[in-house]
């Protein structure tokens, strides 16, 4: 059986909120290392990969592999019934029909309990190899969100160019063009504002802003976001969580036909 207790319901609320517009039905794969999710969007150009390590829960117990097929719309409805600070416990039997969620208020003696019916989801899993990317940019997640939002007002696509000069986000649209240039930057007092660019070779790739704006819904999960790029391969956008847990998004680049 599965029993996983999260100190704050907020974490799961934010994760689900960040991915629910991209993917609808997905399997939460539970085993002794934690709870993982991998799902592609309908057009198969974007992929979500979530890992909540067992260390992110206390306690965490999962005796055998369980796939919980959950509709994220349903999960969102139930998670709205939890206060952000509630303690959240996920429970399921070994061959479950439902997943059970218990919300406990640390301040009051209120305990609420919900069951969500599970679905059989036949999901394709992709093997994503560990990749040495040509450029890795670590930057404030709010800054990345702002760039994507600002440029999406002008264009459907953004080109991300990374060179030893820094990183340039460029777009061209009907009304004109825009570009934002960032260089490596260290703020000793506010390290969350740091921009770090790790480059082994120059990279230039174009991506759909619609998807990037969508990924940025995860900004509330982490102060910093990591963008990993190599020419001609999908972009990795990573939001690191505590205990080596993470929320990652992959996006296929736009290429000439």
């Amino acid at each position: 059986m599965l029993e996983a207790r999260l100190e704050q319901a907020n974490l799961l609320k934010k994760v689900v909120d960040a991915i629910k517009d991209l993917v609808q039905d997905c399997n939460f794969d539970c085993n002794d290392s934690g709870i993982a999710l991998q799902a592609m969007d309908n057009s198969h150009v974007a992929l979500v990969s979530m890992m909540l390590k067992s260390e992110s829960f206390s306690p965490f117990r999962c005796d055998r592999n369980i796939a919980l097929g959950i509709n994220l719309g349903s999960l969102t409805k139930v998670l709205r019934c939890a206060q952000n600070e509630d303690i959240l416990t996920l429970k399921a039997e070994d061959a479950p029909d439902v997943v059970n969620l218990v919300f406990e208020s640390a301040e009051t003696d209120r305990i609420s309990e919900y069951d969500i019916k599970l679905m059989d989801i036949d999901q394709e899993h992709l093997g994503i190899p560990e990749t040495e990317y040509a450029a890795t940019i670590t930057m404030p997640s709010a800054e990345f969100q702002r760039i994507c939002r600002d440029l999406s007002a002008l264009s459907e696509s953004v080109s991300i160019e990374c060179s030893k000069e820094g990183v340039k986000f460029n777009c061209q649209g009907d009304i004109g063009s825009g570009s934002i240039h960032l260089r490596s930057h260290t703020n000793v007092d506010k390290p969350e504002l740091n921009v770090e660019i790790d480059l082994t070779e120059p990279v230039s790739l174009t991506f759909s802003l619609k998807y990037l704006v969508n990924f940025c819904k995860a900004s509330g999960l982490s102060n910093q976001v990591k963008l990993c790029l190599s020419n001609e391969v999908p972009l990795l956008v990573e939001y690191a969580l505590s205990n080596n847990s993470y929320l990652r998004f992959y996006l296929a680049p736009k290429i000439g036909d």
Partner: peptide, 14 residues
């Protein structure tokens, strides 16, 4: 025209 390829072109099925 710019196209986005299916991710299955980049990653193999696990």
């Amino acid at each position: 025209v710019l196209l986005q390829k299916n991710l299955k072109n980049y990653y193999i099925k696990a």
